[in-house]
Amino acid sequence: MTDTDRTPAAATGEKQPFDLGTGPGRVLVWFYGVFTVAAASRSIVQMILDFGKAPLAYVLSAVAALVYGFITYSLVRGGEKARRTALVCCAGELAGVLIVGTWTLADPSAFADATVWSDFGAGYLLIPVILPVTGMIWLRRARTA
């Protein structure tokens, strides 16, 4: 192996692939992973024990879990395609949080029980509304790196 074979990509002018799960991305992976487990656990238990009480709320929590899981997977997988997919999912997640959050404030009687995204995630310290914004900022930064 010659010295040129050991030269880092940055030194040769090649663009290094950006690892989405490093630095602040690792914190995002952790939060999304925790929220995947929390939302999935919550929705599964609620759907098994009392689905008829609040089916809309429980299904929305399951949808949130799926979105969180897909974003977690994309961040761990890395690559440009995963970055773009995660960016779209974060935008969809933010739209969901804003729609459900507004809906729960405007018409609380529509939800017999809270969802992960109710009141903009107030039951989760507003992390559900902060997380997609943070994710989109990180994923846009990852594109330019």
Rank of each mutant, 00 (worst) to 15 (best):
T4L: 14
T4V: 13
R6S: 04
T7K: 02
T7N: 00
T7D: 01
P8Q: 01
A9Y: 10
A10F: 13
A11N: 08
A11E: 12
E14F: 11
K15I: 07
P17H: 04
P17D: 09
P17N: 03
F18T: 15
G21R: 11
G21I: 05
T22S: 14
P24F: 15
G25E: 03
R26N: 10
V27P: 08
F31H: 06
F31R: 02
Y32A: 03
Y32W: 14
F35K: 00
V37Y: 02
A39Y: 03
A39R: 00
A40V: 01
S43C: 01
S43E: 03
Q46F: 13
Q46T: 08
M47E: 11
M47G: 09
I48D: 13
D50F: 04
D50E: 10
D50T: 03
F51V: 00
F51W: 15
K53Q: 12
K53N: 12
A54H: 06
P55E: 02
L56I: 10
A57S: 14
Y58H: 04
Y58Q: 00
Y58D: 00
V59C: 03
L60F: 11
S61A: 05
S61F: 02
A62N: 08
A62H: 10
V63T: 07
A64W: 09
A64T: 13
A64L: 05
A64Q: 06
L66E: 08
F70A: 14
F70Q: 15
F70N: 14
I71F: 07
T72H: 03
Y73V: 05
Y73L: 05
S74V: 04
S74Y: 09
V76R: 06
V76A: 07
R77G: 01
G78L: 00
E80R: 07
E80K: 07
A82E: 03
R83H: 04
R83T: 00
R84T: 12
R84P: 10
T85Q: 12
A86G: 06
A86P: 04
A86S: 07
A86D: 06
L87T: 15
V88H: 14
V88N: 13
C89K: 12
C90T: 12
C90H: 15
A91T: 11
A91Y: 11
G92A: 13
G92M: 12
L94G: 09
L94P: 13
G96R: 02
G96E: 09
V97Q: 08
V97D: 10
V97H: 10
V97M: 10
I99V: 15
V100A: 07
G101P: 11
G101A: 08
W103Q: 04
L105R: 13
L105H: 15
D107C: 08
P108E: 06
P108N: 07
P108Y: 09
A110T: 09
F111G: 03
F111Q: 04
A112I: 01
A112S: 05
A114C: 09
A114K: 14
T115F: 10
V116I: 08
V116C: 03
W117G: 07
W117Q: 11
W117F: 15
S118V: 04
A122D: 10
Y124K: 00
Y124G: 01
L125F: 15
L126H: 11
I127M: 09
I127Y: 08
P128S: 06
P132L: 04
V133C: 08
V133A: 13
T134G: 09
T134L: 14
T134E: 06
G135C: 05
G135M: 03
I137F: 15
I137R: 15
I137W: 15
W138S: 04
L139K: 07
L139A: 09
A142V: 03
R143I: 05
